[in-house]
Design a protein around this nucleic acid. Structure first.
Length: 489
RNA sequence: CGGGGCGUAGCGUAGCCCGGUAGCGCGCCUGCUUCGGGAGCAGGAGGUCGCUGGUUCAAAUCCAGUCGCCCCGACCA
């Protein structure tokens, strides 16, 4: 019976642990439609907080939200050669509407470059109309063969930023800027450290000049591509005739960028921070930051304790911190459920802090504050509760990032290892391996074939090893780049 | 699409080999006692055994087909 309630441990079966955590924490559930999931309030609440934080960052960097249609004329997809090759196999196509066969089938957007740059073309005449800096929050559909809750679903929610610029350099700057925004969000809000860098041609977005990525490491030492930012060059502007009159005469094609993160991030959050008791949510993204669990025996105690609990909730909700944000507090007043049962439930859901308060505490004008991440208990005075909780929340946020970073470092190999050692590592514990690469597509493909590992990124300068690797991991010829290898989701 | 597994109450499952009135745990409802780490007792509700067809006096069980889901691979955010 007690075993029913326990999660499969991460060590026993990481994949089973992940699924059970998502289901039991009620983040999401399987839907009647194959490959599609229902995001339940606990999961959607996290996504909403992600959206809010990201949206603020997009606005702060000059972007505006807009919305483009779900349906895209099939012919649009055909206009950019690489793009159609990349996406056509996984599109859902609408052939009928209102009981009639459509003149031209409509694809359900797998991404919106085509329709958005078509519209940008319509709105752009002069260099004075640029840059265009837009973002949309939307759902997209990709007919994946194999799906997993949050990580890869047929339909998923995301944001896609799309911009148009006068010069290549300006577009490149935008591409890098948004990658930085993602990284700031992932580290600052999700407490999920990432490495950033450029994708190889094999891993590049279909239709892009260059793709940059934030790669995070999950607790099974596999990589998760958490967000990408693409410099699209003039590929789409040429395909969609997105031209403008240049400042000094003549007509030029615009330079585009696109960048996106999705509900996959929720899965990344689970696999970064979850433990064998369930989810751990960093405070900044937790829909509830602190749950108060009242403890009582008699009806009289119940009313006294609950009254205190609600009083505390009110004062903490008024507690000013981080300028406008207030502490999100919930009182678990459910009757007929023992405190212990409530502890387990809130731990499973990953609520960062719990305040236990009973008659004995009230006599001492105290309560017991419990951290979800470490499960450490601290008695706190009710007089200074606001300060203590606010301080604890920022400490938890900080320490969760530190713990995740230590884990990333611990499973990162920078020493020069042989290909055999590399192979064994990928068959066994996994992790990120920094190694030399001759930049040959052959070596990249062979390593993937033989080990399932791929080049996650050619790391940005700050991540590169102090002494650049001299030879290619695979062929042993002189290395022209350093690459980060890992198995990935 | 290849390989593996599974469909029996809301969830998890036993029963299937060897056909004969569908059982258990959790959860749910009611009441009482409980409540500082997953409560106890008593009573109760809940099932066309995925679907279709066949064999049989009789099918959850045997046979054929079919649908769906999960896991592992190739594809991908």
């Amino acid at each position: 019976m007690a075993d029913d309630k326990k999660l499969t441990t991460r060590a026993a079966d990481f994949s089973a642990w992940y699924n059970e955590t998502v289901l039991k924490a009620e983040l999401a559930d399987y839907s009647p439609v194959r490959g599609c999931m229902v995001i339940r309030p606990n999961g959607y609440g996290i996504w909403e907080r992600m959206q809010r934080a990201l949206d603020d960052k997009f606005k702060a960097t000059g972007h505006q939200n807009a919305y483009f249609p779900l349906f895209i004329p099939e012919s649009f997809l055909q206009k950019e050669a690489e793009h159609v090759e990349g996406f056509a196999p996984e599109t859902a196509v609408v052939t009928h509407g209102g009981g009639k066969k459509l003149e031209e089938p409509l694809i359900v957007r797998p991404t919106s470059e085509t329709i958005i740059y078509h519209m940008f073309a319509k709105w752009t005449q002069s260099y004075r109309d640029l840059p265009i800096l837009m973002n949309q929050w939307a759902n997209v559909v990709r007919w994946e063969m194999r799906t997993r809750l949050f990580l890869r679903t047929t339909e998923f929610l995301w944001q896609e930023g799309h911009t148009a610029h006068v010069t290549h350099d300006e577009a490149e700057e935008e591409t890098r800027r948004m990658l930085g925004v993602y990284r700031d969000f992932m580290e600052g809000w999700m407490a999920m450290p990432v490495i950033t860098g450029q994708k190889t041609n094999a891993e590049r977005f279909a239709g892009a000049l260059r793709t940059y990525s934030c790669e995070a490491m999950m607790q099974d030492n596999k990589a998760l591509q958490a967000g990408t930012s693409h410099n699209l060059g003039q590929n789409f502007s040429k395909a969609f005739d997105l031209k403008f009159q240049a400042e000094h005469g003549g007509t030029e094609f615009a330079w585009n960028t696109s960048w996106g993160v999705s509900t996959r991030l929720v899965g990344g959050l689970v696999m970064t921070h979850g433990d064998d008791n369930g989810l751990r949510t960093p405070p900044l993204l937790a829909p509830i930051e602190l749950v108060i669990v009242p403890i009582y025996r008699t009806d009289e105690e119940r009313s006294v304790v609950l009254e205190a609990a609600h009083r505390i909730q009110k004062s903490l909700s008024d507690w000013e911190r981080r300028d406008i944000a207030r502490i999100r507090v919930h009182v678990d007043a459910r009757d007929g459920m023992k405190p212990g049962a409530k502890y387990y439930e809130w731990e499973l859901r990953g609520i960062p802090l719990r305040l236990e308060i009973g008659p004995r505490d009230l006599l001492k004008n105290e309560a017991v504050l419990v951290r979800r991440d470490t499960r450490a208990k601290t008695p706190v005075s009710l007089d200074t509760l606001g300060e203590e909780v606010a301080e604890m929340l920022s400490r938890v946020q900080r320490e969760m990032l530190e713990a995740a970073r230590e884990r990333l470092d611990a499973s990162t190999v920078r020493e020069r290892i042989s290909y055999d050692q590399f192979r064994q590592l990928m068959e066994g514990p996994g992790g990120f391996v920094y190694a030399g690469w001759c930049e040959g597509a052959e070596c990249e493909a062979q390593i993937k074939e033989e080990t399932k590992a791929t080049i996650r990124v050619l790391p940005d300068e700050e991540f590169r090893s102090a002494d650049a690797p001299a030879t290619c991991l695979k062929c042993g010829k002189p290395a022209t780049a350093e690459a980060v290898w890992a198995k990935a989701y």
